[in-house]
């Protein structure tokens, strides 16, 4: 079980969080149909670092951006949604 450092609540067990989706699979309201299909049905499943959307559902309920390595579960960054990482793109 991962240990996720919530920016509001500190280190918390993964059981308090819900994985939502990779950031790149967020579907905007006005998403064009050709872009929508891959985001719905053929999502990427990267091996290695990935930006993901999580929610601290059983904690502060905030939406978080995690930079997580899917291969070794290292969590490189946890940001509040809307926050931009230093020098990164998310």
């Amino acid at each position: 079980m991962l240990l996720i450092h919530c920016p509001h609540c500190g280190p918390r067990a993964q059981a308090e969080f819900v994985f939502e989706r990779p950031l790149e699979s967020i579907i905007q309201i006005d998403e064009a149909l050709p872009d929508l299909i891959p985001k719905l049905y053929s999502r990427v499943n990267p091996k290695g670092p990935s930006w993901e959307l999580w929610r601290h559902t059983y904690g502060c309920q905030s939406w978080l951006k995690l930079h997580r390595d899917t291969h070794n579960h290292t969590i490189h960054a946890v940001l509040e949604i809307g926050q931009t990482p230093e020098g990164g793109d998310a």
Partner: peptide, 13 residues
Amino acid sequence: SAHLSYVRKVLAP
């Protein structure tokens, strides 16, 4: 409840 939160915070902040 989660969906409303998602739309508000992620899609239309």
